[in-house]
């Protein structure tokens, strides 16, 4: 079963949030939506879970009972304890008592939250609270799991924990769609979609996306054209869209981050040409 959104257009008043975006979310895989704030990630995710109606296009999603959703906000009820959050959300999906415990206990265990069942959600650290939100989204044993920036603002250690939980959910058969601003996370996903101002900038498997960039990227110490350059760790990178062999620097195999930055540069330049 593959879920997803095809050719989605969404307008909010005069603003167009999605411009013909399509994404497939196959079962057993993690699909990533990458983009900055305002790119349309949240709108796409909310359209998939039925929170935003489309002006045009179609949505394929399972029944509400089989959708798990973690919004970009807190994701749990701050004034309730971990266990109370579990009880409440479990109840909404018709899980109580033993059935709920069988479902929730391993989740809390894996998320390293079993020891803090009585702590209020509001008193958890940012990383723990995101993990609780994830556990809540996992309670219905979802066919479709939609996670809106599960790792933003979360430290690297908790991010590793979260990633482990997410990849396990996929390994157990859920179709997972997550949004992120971290490209190292996107690189681990089976496929990804890069959004920019409501447009699809890039899409495909990480390999396909990296291969889709034309031209060459070099590692250098001085940029010949700063508008085409950026920092990557300790190095400087520069993109030559025409593929011309540059004089200095060494040609590198770009990673996802390089490709997304280069593609964003290209989009900006195309935009200027149009004007």
């Amino acid at each position: 079963m593959s879920y997803g959104v095809s050719d989605a257009w969404v307008r909010f008043g005069s603003q167009v949030a999605l411009r013909g975006v399509s994404v497939g979310v196959p079962a057993g895989q993690v699909t990533a939506v990458v983009g900055g704030d305002g790119a349309g990630k949240s709108t796409l995710l909310r359209a998939l879970v039925g929170r935003v109606g489309l002006d045009q296009g179609s949505v394929a999603a399972p029944a509400r009972e089989r959708i798990g959703y973690l919004p970009a906000t807190t994701g749990s009820w701050l004034d309730m304890s971990v266990q109370e959050n579990i009880d409440f959300v479990g109840g909404a999906y018709g899980l109580t008592g033993q059935a709920l415990a069988r479902r929730a206990d391993p989740l809390l265990e894996r998320a390293d939250l079993a020891g803090v069942r009585d702590r209020l959600s509001g008193q958890l650290s940012g990383g723990m609270r995101r993990k609780l939100g994830f556990c809540l989204a996992m309670l219905p044993d979802p066919e479709l799991l939609v996670l809106d920036e599960p790792s933003t603002g979360v430290d690297p250690v908790s991010r590793v924990d979260l990633w482990r939980l997410i990849s396990e959910a996929a390994a157990n058969g859920s179709a997972v769609l997550m949004s992120t601003t971290y490209l190292d996370e996107a690189e681990r996903c089976a496929s990804l979609l890069v959004l920019h101002e409501g447009h699809t900038l890039l899409s495909g498997t990480p390999h396909e996306v990296v291969a889709s960039l034309s031209g060459t990227i070099i590692s250098t110490t001085t940029l010949s054209r700063p508008a085409f350059g950026w920092r990557h760790g300790r190095e400087l990178r520069e993109w030559f869209p025409e593929g011309r062999q540059p004089a200095g620097g060494s040609v590198i195999t770009p990673d996802l981050e390089d490709v997304v930055i280069a593609s964003s540069l290209k989009l900006g330049m195309d935009g200027e040409e149009r004007l």
Partner: peptide, 23 residues
């Protein structure tokens, strides 16, 4: 939902809106 065009469960084609003014 912000605009109620989506049905309950799966595959429900939303009525197509006006042609978007894309650039």
């Amino acid at each position: 939902p912000t605009r109620r065009k989506r049905g309950g469960t799966s595959e429900s084609d939303a009525a197509s809106g006006a042609e978007a003014g894309s650039t």
